[in-house]
Amino acid sequence: MPTVLVVEDTFSEMELICNYLRESGYSVITTSDAKDAMTKAEQQKPDVVVTDVVMPGMSGLELCRTLKKNPATQKLPIVVCTSKNQDLDRMWAMKQGADAYVTKPFTKEELVKAVKSVAV
């Protein structure tokens, strides 16, 4: 069963993402903190990361950059899941290392399709 690390600081969004992924056969690890996500990514070796962008402390884009620079996590696929829906936001996320981009609100199908598209 593939494992997804979900990084989301809004409890309701976290619950929704986790439910959609679990219903689709994924094992889920969660955190609301991008710095904690870096540790969990190294230690628990998830198959995919799904991250919000706007979070306190460290943004999801900073998390993308950091994971892609770290030899232990640089090949880890990242799905950005955000309310930022402009083309510029999408382009910038991809430049930071995102492999897929989903805008909120999203359907279960959109989220799962994005995760499947990047999972190795």
Rank of each mutant, 00 (worst) to 15 (best):
V50D: 01
A100D: 15
T10M: 09
A100L: 06
T31D: 10
K68L: 00
V79L: 00
G57A: 15
L5H: 05
M91P: 00
I17K: 06
D36Y: 03
G25P: 03
K108H: 09
V102Y: 04
E23Y: 05
N85G: 14
D9R: 00
T107D: 11
Y26C: 08
T73H: 03
V28T: 14
A93R: 04
F11D: 12
T103N: 06
I29W: 03
R22Y: 02
V102K: 05
A100Y: 07
S117R: 09
T73N: 08
S27F: 06
E62K: 08
S117Y: 03
K108G: 04
S24V: 11
M91V: 14
T30D: 02
Q74G: 01
N85A: 15
M1I: 14
T82F: 07
A72V: 15
T82R: 09
V28Y: 06
V49Y: 04
Q44R: 13
P2H: 07
K84V: 02
Q43H: 10
M94L: 13
E62S: 15
E62M: 10
Y26A: 08
K116P: 00
L5K: 09
V102M: 05
R90P: 04
A119S: 11
A37K: 02
S32W: 01
T73F: 01
M1Q: 15
G57Q: 14
T103Y: 03
A114F: 08
P46S: 08
T3P: 00
V118S: 05
Y101D: 13
E62N: 12
T31P: 02
I17L: 12
K69Q: 14
R65G: 10
N19K: 14
K40E: 13
T39W: 11
T51S: 15
A100Q: 13
P2N: 13
L67K: 02
S12Q: 04
V48L: 01
V80L: 06
Q74P: 02
V80H: 02
K104H: 06
S32C: 11
C64E: 12
L88N: 03
E15G: 05
